[in-house]
């Protein structure tokens, strides 16, 4: 068991959880998340992500192990650790009959905030999450995306130092997801540590600096996003051409493998360690004008699947 650093927002040591039905959800988790980090916790369904969040938020009791939040033990410093935490759960968990504004103001009351301060905080976060106009609506009238944003506003009303989001953008449309990303990035820039679980690997790649992959109750990868992506040996790039291709482009480098997709596109596979400037030069020499280029596969997805296999 490693020692716990006081500079961590979260330190987890030897965490295990066996449910009453005998299912062992966690098999000895060690995990550190640094202060001000934007951290991704990835894993397939049933891997143990929500159990970890449940234990941190005290909704689930650990079978063994220890968790510290900003250096304070969750089991012994309940008040301080809960004050530092904001939780956005995976499932909608507010009353469907309450008004949007009341839900956020009530949550403020649970943290000892009342009156004008509670109302100011509620207004601040409802405005930031584009829900202010809906403050007098019953929560059941909100769309799925609005309900998720309401849970974020509710989790922020006491201004926690650590925000944990369990799949916050599940079922949210692309435009809304992007605006939520921007909001979370702004929050992180202003000093809030963020831990995110998600199924959208693109989301983790875009937002997070560090990442842990959990599978069957164990951490199988725990590193920075950069280092993880560097592990990918090859990548496949798809090129769209301005004009119709007369023949497939050719390259004098055996590392570069080119395949035509259709009359206006082709794909190139090459090592991730090399630059791609030479490819453009070779294409220009062959008179091929490129209109656009994209990565064929989600890089993180490949690494994720490879981590799970290993």
């Amino acid at each position: 068991m490693q020692s716990i650093s006081p500079k961590n927002a979260i330190s987890i040591r030897g965490l295990t959880k066996t449910y009453a039905n005998g299912f062992q959800a966690l098999k000895g988790i060690d995990l550190d998340v640094k202060e001000n980090d934007f951290f991704a916790l990835l894993g397939p369904n049933g891997a143990g992500k929500s159990t970890i969040i449940g234990i941190i938020s005290t909704l689930v009791r650990a079978s063994s192990g220890a968790i510290q939040v900003f250096g304070q033990d969750v089991a012994t410093h309940v008040y301080e650790t809960k004050l530092s935490l904001g939780i956005v759960p995976q499932e909608i968990n507010f009353s469907q009959f309450e008004k949007v504004g009341d839900i956020v103001i009530t949550q403020a009351g649970y943290y000892g905030l009342r009156g004008d301060l509670a109302k100011q905080r509620a207004e601040k976060y409802l405005r930031k999450l584009d829900l202010w106009e809906k403050r007098d609506n019953r929560s059941r009238m909100l769309s799925g995306g609005m309900k998720r944003r309401l849970m974020i506003a509710r989790a922020l009303v006491h201004e926690p130092r650590l925000l944990i989001l369990d799949e916050p953008t599940a079922g949210v449309d692309i435009e809304l997801r992007r605006s939520m990303w921007e909001f979370l990035q702004e929050l992180n820039r202003n000093g809030t540590t963020i831990i995110l679980t998600t199924h959208y690997l693109e989301e983790a790649e875009s937002l997070c600096r560090n990442i842990a992959i959990i599978n069957q109750g164990q951490i199988v990868e725990n590193t920075s996003m950069r280092k993880l992506l560097d592990k990918l040996a090859r990548q496949t790039l798809v090129f769209d051409t301005c004009d119709e291709l007369e023949s497939a482009p050719t390259f004098n480098d055996p590392d570069i493998l080119c395949t035509t997709i259709d009359s206006h596109s082709f794909e190139i596979s090459l090592s991730t360690s090399r630059d791609i400037n030479g490819i453009y030069a070779a294409l220009s020499e062959q008179g091929i004008l490129i209109r656009g280029m994209r990565n064929k596969t989600n890089r993180l997805e490949e690494l994720f699947l490879s981590s799970l296999k290993n």
Binding site: S57, T58, L59, V78, Y79, K82, L83, L85, I87, P89, E91, I92, N93, F94, S95, T106, Q107, Y110, Y111, R154
Partner: peptide
């Protein structure tokens, strides 16, 4: 599950 609102609070 809105009891969780109170249970996660201090």
């Amino acid at each position: 599950r809105c009891i969780e609102e109170i249970l996660v609070s201090p």
